[in-house]
Amino acid sequence: MADMEKTGIRIEGLRKRYGEGDTAVDALKGVDMQVAPGEVVGLIGPSGSGKSTLLKCLGAVIEPSAGRMTLGQDLIYNDRWEIADLRALRRDKIGFVFQAPYLIPFLDVTDNVALLPMLAGESNAIARQRARELLEALDVAHRARAMPAQLSGGEQQRVAIARALVNRPPVILADEPTAPLDSERALAVIRILNQMARQFDTAIIVVTHDEKIIPTFKRIYHIRDGRTHEEAGAAMPLE
């Protein structure tokens, strides 16, 4: 039980098959992965290796074909979904950071972040208070009333990180979060992700091709042909 409590996310023997019969394609062939709370790991692999499929399975967007997934203390998948409301699971237990920030263009920065707790039933005042605290922590509080189009790329990505964190999910899935950024800003985003992971005890999986940030991970999962293998990263200092 003690081990489970320390689990951010654990995946065992995860498989995903698309189609049936002769046309079936095995995108994931038994993926094992474990990320502890407060840890940031990299997930890298060539195109078509299964990264996106794995991310979608982890994000409860598509259903795996077999295996086990545990989020925090909750077994969410054991050859079938153990959770009935996947929408609530995504809202409350999983944070998403995308390649582009995909902020809601008609909401200001505060409400972009506060939207998730509001969707979870939190009052507007409390949701906005939590949003402001996170924006403060991510050093974008001064843009709290700005609209997304008024922000720089780096600021938008920090707001997106705040949105991913606002419901205190045990895991954040970051899909190429530094792709559109230059080296300095890319490293700043990774630095922030590491800070937030430690501060909020969140397990963060960063899917990336970005050579600039790969050396910063302590652990890296390589995925190829639907299978992962783990290796130690260079753990380049970020400070």
């Binding site: 994000g59 998403f96 809601i104 969707l119």
Partner: peptide
């Protein structure tokens, strides 16, 4: 469409 996909992904009913 993209914003709606994001809204659905983050748990909007």
């Amino acid at each position: 469409i993209r914003e709606i996909a994001v809204l659905k992904l983050i748990g909007t009913r």
